[in-house]
Simulated scan of single mutants.
Amino acid sequence: MDAIITVDPAQRIVLFNRAAEVVFRCSRLDALGAPLERFIPMRFRAAHQSHIEQFARTGITSRRMGDNLVLWGLRAGGEEFPLEASISQTREAAGNFYTVILRDITLRKHSEDRLKQQQAELRELSARVLEAREEEKTLIARELHDELGQLLTALKMDLAWLRERLPPAESELGGKAAQMDALLDRTVTSVRRISAELRPLMLDDLGLHDAVTWLTDDFAARSGVSCQLTLAEESALEGLERNVANTVYRVLQESLTNIARHAQAAHAWVMLAGDAEGLRIEIEDDGRGIGKEDLVRPRSLGLKGMRERVLYLGGTLEIDRAPRGGTRVRARVPRPHAAQGGT
């Protein structure tokens, strides 16, 4: 049962039902004739009076109070509690009478707060896992590029030395050595590709501008999809925090991977812009487009990973149908100082 309170034009209580006695822990006899502000926390009393006056001027019979906001009441013992309420007004000769129907939502608010806390903790944990993966990828990419790459290069040099010294008459050995040389070339190319997919070293060494350029060129060359890149001036992408650069790069990488695998597109467009507040990236294609069922599919880990990366940094990510008929991914990633300033 909901609590019901009616006040006269002077904002004094004229009706206080049994549920109101329970919610406010105050007897009906004690509440009747008392000012309504007795049950409103001090910091909200001025605003409440202003809202009542504004409601009276609208002429609306009834409406919900505090849309999208949590309202607070004050129990007789001084304890504050969250509530939801609706208000109605009745015009009488003596003035307007106002009736408030309210409900104590303490338990629900506690559950919502707990859920938000758990979601924040899960997002923090997810971010830490992503950071750990990023560090591990960087380490593996470095080892592949530096150690394995150097060993393969040394092996290729040794093979070249050996081929130069093979007797001309040993055509079979020469042919086998040539095959080995070609296999080494393919192995070196594969190592470089795997290393770059794990973590492009130019992202650390040269920055996001060059890494994005390389990634789009490599995507176009390997997929056959024409890719048009509109890139911010290099100065706009300088001095980026590592987690911001990582996030933007991974969003682009995942989006291009999805285009190559699923979109059946002929063209793709990438736009990256930056300013003092953060970065904005858009990736669009003219393929078959993504369906709503794809966005919520449990195995869509790549999309979920993108969203978690962006949300953790206080950014936004939108994935929808593109005007050209394909899929459009739009992300905005604020710089840390901008995200803090907006809170």
Rank of each mutant, 00 (worst) to 15 (best):
H51Q: 14
G207A: 04
V188C: 05
R64Q: 11
A56M: 11
L102Q: 06
W161K: 11
P200D: 00
R103V: 13
L229C: 04
S171V: 15
T153F: 08
L159R: 02
E293A: 10
D320H: 08
R186W: 14
L317G: 08
M202N: 09
G274N: 01
F16D: 03
G66A: 15
G274T: 00
S86G: 15
G95K: 05
C227G: 01
A47T: 07
I101S: 07
I87V: 15
D204S: 12
T189I: 10
L159I: 07
I5R: 04
T106A: 10
R222M: 12
R192C: 12
C26K: 07
G207V: 02
K137G: 15
P323K: 03
G274S: 09
R250A: 11
E172Q: 15
L152W: 02
I4G: 03
L173V: 11
S300A: 13
I290P: 01
F24R: 02
A178I: 13
P167V: 13
M157K: 13
I40N: 07
P9Q: 02
P167Y: 02
E92W: 08
R43H: 09
V188H: 12
N258Y: 02
A56Q: 13
H337V: 09
A266P: 02
T90G: 03
L130I: 10
T153S: 14
S62E: 12
Q117S: 09
L148N: 06
T6A: 06
T257Q: 03
A93K: 10
I281E: 00
L32A: 04
V100G: 06
E308S: 14
I13F: 07
A263S: 08
A266I: 02
S88T: 12
D218M: 04
R335F: 06
H145Q: 11
L303W: 00
L162E: 12
P200S: 07
A46H: 11
Q54R: 13
D104M: 08
A20I: 03
D30M: 02
T247E: 05
P41E: 00
I290K: 07
L183T: 13
T316P: 02
E277L: 07
L240T: 03
